[in-house]
Structures are given as structure tokens and as C-alpha cells.
Simulated assay, not measured.
Amino acid sequence: MDVSQLERIDVTQLPHSLQLLIDCIGVEQAYRLTCLFGGCPKYIPKHPARTQLAKLIPAETLKALIKRFAGAALEIPKPDHFFRQLRNQQILAESDEGLSRTALAHKYGLSLRQIGNIRRLDA
């Protein structure tokens, strides 16, 4: 996923834990953390030298995480939340272009009910 896609993310529609991460380190770095550690707890140490995170994320990102979450184990959400929101935006755009619920359900591997729910959320 590239940065232009991440700019389309509506942070208010993401889980609270992910909103906290985004508030601390931004959407791009939060997405990166979810890709690296999604679904797993990750301990944030009080000192950067005590973690392997220093090798995986930028120093300023680690510094911000330590400042806010030092000594805590963060449950890092899965990146699915980002993918789902972008998929739903695409479904809504294609629906506006005239694609039927059946065509959308087939294209995205979803049920007719799921497509209807996604379209209803936009109304």
C-alpha cells in the first residue's frame, strides 16, 4: 500500500487502539507497525537501546512511542482495518458508477448482504 492510499483513510472509523497509534506516530508509521506486528502485543521499553524495534522503525517513531507508551505492552491491531476501509471506499465508488450489488459481491468475494451494509453505511 502506498502513501497516497493511506491519505484516504478516515482515522475516525478505525479502532480506538489504532487511532491512539496514529495520533502518536502518524498513519504511515502506524500502518507499518500493523504490518510488522499486527495481532501481537509489542512491549515498548523505556530506553531505545533495549529493543529490536530500533532496527525496524525510524528513530523518531521509536522516540515518540517511548515518550507516550514507555513500559507498556501495546496490542498492535492487524492491518486489515486499513485494507477493509479502502476496499469499502472502492465498493462505494464502483456502486456510484452503476455496478450492481451482485457484480460487486462477486468481484470482492462478499455476500449481497455485506455489499448492502457497506452501501448503507455511506448513506
Rank of each mutant, 00 (worst) to 15 (best):
M1Q: 12
E7W: 02
V11S: 06
Q13F: 01
P15G: 11
H16K: 12
S17K: 13
Q19L: 05
L21M: 10
V27T: 15
E28C: 04
Y31H: 15
R32A: 09
R32P: 02
L33Q: 10
L36T: 00
L36I: 00
F37Y: 14
C40Y: 11
Y43A: 13
I44F: 06
I44Y: 05
I44C: 07
H47N: 14
R50G: 10
T51R: 04
L53F: 04
L53E: 05
K55Q: 12
L56C: 05
A59Q: 11
E60A: 09
E60C: 05
L62S: 09
L62T: 05
A64D: 07
A64Y: 02
L65F: 10
I66G: 01
I66M: 06
R68H: 06
F69D: 01
A70S: 14
A73V: 05
E75Q: 15
I76E: 01
P77W: 07
P77K: 09
P79L: 12
H81Q: 06
H81C: 10
H81G: 01
F82A: 00
R84I: 11
R84Q: 11
R84D: 03
R84G: 01
Q85M: 10
L86S: 11
R87Q: 13
N88S: 04
Q89A: 09
Q89N: 13
Q90H: 10
S95K: 15
E97Y: 11
E97K: 15
G98I: 07
T102D: 12
L104K: 13
A105V: 03
A105R: 02
A105L: 00
H106V: 11
S111F: 06
Q114R: 15
I115F: 07
G116P: 02
N117D: 04
I118T: 05
R119D: 01
R119C: 11
R120Y: 06
R120D: 03
R120Q: 12
L121V: 06
L121Q: 15
L121R: 15
L121T: 13
D122K: 14
A123T: 05
A123C: 05
A123G: 13
